[in-house]
Simulated assay, not measured.
Amino acid sequence: MEAFLISTGIVALAEMGDKTQLLALVLAARFRKPWPIVLGIFVATIANHAMAGALGAWVTTLISPQILRWILGASFLAMAVWMLIPDKLDDEEGSSAPRFGVFGTTVLAFFLAEMGDKTQIATVMLAARYEAYYAVVAGTTLGMMLANAPVVWLGERVTRLVPLRVVHIVSALVFAVLGVLALLIKA
């Protein structure tokens, strides 16, 4: 249960102000069809985080626990720094009729946007740390949905409720604490 709850919280915080959250806002404003967008986010997240969780579980078979602890600690500290750098949405789509429909466009856009993203890397690290594949993937997926579904449903008003700078600082502190704990506490 710990792996699930921590994974949910970390990803929900890390996702605030992230490019995929901005992507959710753009898709919601552009297509105005929340159900296929939310379902597309869910499918893309499960696929992406399932692969990331599998990578994290596989890494634990290759690296000794001591070395893995140092790598995880350094990775969490790097994530803390990364959280302080806000994301920008790089490209907006130009055509009004999506080639793959709203659902397909959302799945493709979210899957690609998550590649190498903070939340994908966090999923790899959490799966390696907790060695609880299903709990981590379920938690990180729930965290993504908690951060992105309200943006789709409520649009721009959600991003005005919480100052993103505060969320980024809190997220950075969470990652920093986890990094220090990983370095200091033996598993």
Rank of each mutant, 00 (worst) to 15 (best):
W153Y: 13
L142W: 07
A135N: 11
D117W: 09
I46A: 10
M145H: 04
V59K: 02
A24E: 04
A176D: 09
W70Q: 06
D117A: 13
L22R: 05
G143C: 08
M83N: 14
L23M: 10
L72W: 07
I10Q: 00
A28R: 02
H168R: 15
H49G: 05
F110C: 01
S171N: 07
I185Q: 10
G17N: 06
T123P: 00
V162N: 06
V180R: 02
L77V: 09
M51R: 02
E156S: 09
F111W: 14
Q66P: 01
V102W: 05
A28T: 04
E156N: 09
D91V: 15
S95L: 14
F42N: 03
L161V: 12
G155N: 08
E92G: 11
M83D: 10
A128H: 01
G9C: 11
F110N: 00
R157C: 06
F42Y: 07
P150Q: 10
L5Q: 05
P150G: 11
L22H: 11
A122H: 01
D18I: 08
A80S: 14
G73S: 05
V167Y: 05
A28N: 04
G94R: 13
G9S: 12
D87Y: 14
M125R: 01
G155P: 07
A135G: 04
I46D: 01
H49D: 08
W58Y: 12
A57T: 14
M79H: 07
A3C: 11
Y130W: 14
A135D: 14
M144D: 03
F175S: 03
G17E: 04
G101C: 10
V38C: 11
V107E: 03
P65I: 10
A3W: 08
V102F: 07
R30T: 12
I37R: 00
W82I: 13
Y133D: 01
K33H: 09
T61E: 07
V151S: 03
F42A: 12
S7V: 07
V38A: 14
L154G: 06
V26F: 15
H49P: 05
V59F: 14
I63E: 03
A122W: 02
F31C: 01
F103Q: 00
A172W: 01
A147K: 02
V137T: 08
I71K: 03
S96Q: 15
A113C: 12
G56Q: 03
M145C: 12
M115G: 04
